[in-house]
Amino acid sequence: MTTDRREEARERTEFAEDRTILANERTFAGWMRTSLGCIAIGVGFHALFNKIDPPWIPRLIATGFLLLAVLVIVLAERRAAAVIDRLNAHVVHTARRMNLRLFAGTISLGAATFAVIIWLLPISAG
């Protein structure tokens, strides 16, 4: 193989790595949207069905969705960070692991806060 062909092969490999890094970031964003959707379902479920008797049932179901949101975002962050560690960016600027952790932590904190608020809200009669 000539030097030019080796250089072309190396460049194709670098571009493929860059595309994989960008795909990883899009995948993380998709899982982040899924996590936010779980939060919305949990809060919405509690808001719509808070009159169900006994009152702990809608709270429990809403809390389940909120915990699912935390699980989804934490697993997505770990997976995205593992991919970032394995690949080397060549042309693109990759997301920093700290930014992924910041997103995951913020979403987790928000979901946990909603869960606490749901359980602390007074039970409305009737």
Rank of each mutant, 00 (worst) to 15 (best):
I61V: 15
T63Y: 04
M32H: 09
D85W: 02
R97H: 12
W31H: 14
L75E: 13
T94E: 13
R10Y: 08
L121H: 02
T20C: 05
D18M: 08
R19M: 11
L48F: 10
F114Q: 07
G30C: 08
T13D: 13
H93N: 06
V74D: 12
M32E: 14
G30A: 15
F15D: 13
F103V: 15
T20N: 07
R26H: 07
I84A: 10
G105C: 03
R79I: 05
T13N: 12
V74R: 13
E11M: 10
R79W: 09
V92K: 04
V92Q: 07
T113C: 07
V92T: 12
G126H: 14
I84K: 09
R12K: 14
G44E: 00
I61Q: 04
S124C: 05
S35N: 03
G42V: 01
I39E: 08
R26V: 10
R96G: 14
V92A: 08
A69E: 01
F65M: 12
R10T: 10
V116K: 07
H90V: 08
R10I: 08
I21G: 01
L48M: 14
L60I: 06
R86N: 09
T106E: 10
L67T: 10
L22S: 04
W31L: 08
A80H: 08
I73H: 01
K51W: 13
A9P: 03
T13R: 15
A23Y: 02
F103C: 11
R97Q: 11
D4V: 13
L66P: 02
F15A: 12
A9W: 10
D4R: 14
I73E: 04
L121K: 13
T27I: 07
R86Y: 09
V83F: 02
H90G: 03
A40E: 07
L60T: 15
L66F: 06
G64N: 11
P122K: 09
A125W: 13
R6A: 13
L67Q: 15
G42L: 01
R33P: 00
L48T: 12
D18Q: 02
L67Y: 06
R33Q: 12
L75D: 11
E17L: 09
R19L: 15
N99E: 15
A9Q: 14
G64Y: 00
R33I: 04
I118D: 01
L66R: 01
E7D: 12
I84C: 06
A111R: 05
